[in-house]
Simulated assay, not measured.
Amino acid sequence: MWKGILLVLTGACSFGILSTIVKLGYHQGFTLGELCSLQAGFGMLVLWGIHFLSGAKTSGLKNKDARTSFILGSSTGLVSITYYQSVQYIPASVAIILLMQFTWMSMLAEWVIYKKRPTPIQWVAVFFILGGTLLAGGLLNNGETPLNWKGIGFGLLAAIFYTIFIVVSGRVAQSLTPLLKSAWIVTGAFLLITLLFPPLYLINGRFTGTSLWIWGIPLAVFGTVLPPFLFAKGMPQTGVALGAIISAAELPVAMLSATIFLREAVTPLQIAGVVIILSAIVVANLQRRSTPEG
């Protein structure tokens, strides 16, 4: 159990520092398309490399599960694009709060798609998550935290796309190993990103002539390689409900890294909002674990 907890916690912390890395990349003059492309491209190469070295069977796109995973990758590609676009307009500590709205969006999506009605306690949790978001997002700080409506919109879009991935991914491609499934998902994400942002950095000298290639390494490791592997290994040991609670560590880690490395100011009201959001997530998922599947 404790090994599983540590694995899931490490995966969540990896996700948590992504927004800070992207923000620092922007400060170096790199673009949204370049950073997204490098993250997916490097991640795809590493995942496929590990898969082939493992000697496991490879399922091509003629396989329905492989094809489904490949298509599902478009949702993760859109998460990266919209989330990192959000970080361009608003503080990283606020962008992660908007992304975390997938916690209640996924409950609603499961209700609409799979007729899995949220419990009364989960509805209460949604109310507190929304209330905590108002505090944590700095909307009650009398203008102290700069907010941009484009950033808010992109942050919520990222939450919607992440909701689609969370709700669908656990129910498809069951015949594939977690590593192969992740490789096909990231390949699909890379294709979408390449169509939207052609990798001109490969021919205009920016890839080798600047430090751009270096930024692709941490983005790929912490965004597309470690989290899927760690979650795949840890979730079976912790269970989905406890795993979801532990993965909420992504929120405080993101805010802490933004405070340390980006010098973003975090007010007591925002800290209180984070505590409320985390508490609501814990309560909602503990309730989900105690409720029989129906």
Results as ranks from 00 to 15, higher is better:
Ile90Ser: 07
Ala92Asn: 03
Ala95Thr: 12
Ala95Ile: 09
Ile96Asn: 08
Ile97Glu: 05
Ile97Met: 11
Leu99Ala: 13
Met100Val: 03
Phe102Thr: 07
Phe102Tyr: 15
Phe102Leu: 12
Thr103Val: 15
Met105Ala: 13
Ser106Val: 11
Ser106Leu: 05
Ala109Arg: 09
Lys116Arg: 15
Pro118Thr: 15
Gln122Ala: 14
Trp123Glu: 01
Val124Pro: 00
Ala125Glu: 02
Phe127Asp: 08
Phe128Gly: 10
Leu134Asp: 05
Ala136Ile: 08
Leu139Ala: 12
Asn141Met: 05
Gly143Asp: 14
Thr145Val: 15
Thr145Gly: 00
Pro146Lys: 12
Leu147Ala: 10
Asn148Lys: 09
Trp149Val: 12
Lys150Met: 09
Gly153Glu: 02
Gly155Trp: 06
Leu156Gly: 04
Ala159Asn: 08
Phe161His: 00
Phe165Gln: 02
Phe165Ser: 01
Ile166His: 11
Val172Met: 04
Ser175His: 13
Ser175Trp: 09
Pro178Tyr: 12
Pro178Lys: 13
Leu179Lys: 02
Lys181Ser: 13
Ser182Lys: 03
Ala183Trp: 07
Trp184Val: 08
Gly188Met: 09
Leu191Ser: 05
Ile193Gly: 03
Ile193Thr: 07
Thr194Trp: 13
Leu195Gly: 06
Phe197Asp: 03
Pro198Asp: 06
Pro198His: 12
Pro199Ala: 07
Leu200Val: 12
Leu200His: 15
Leu202Arg: 11
Arg206Met: 01
Gly209Lys: 08
Thr210Pro: 01
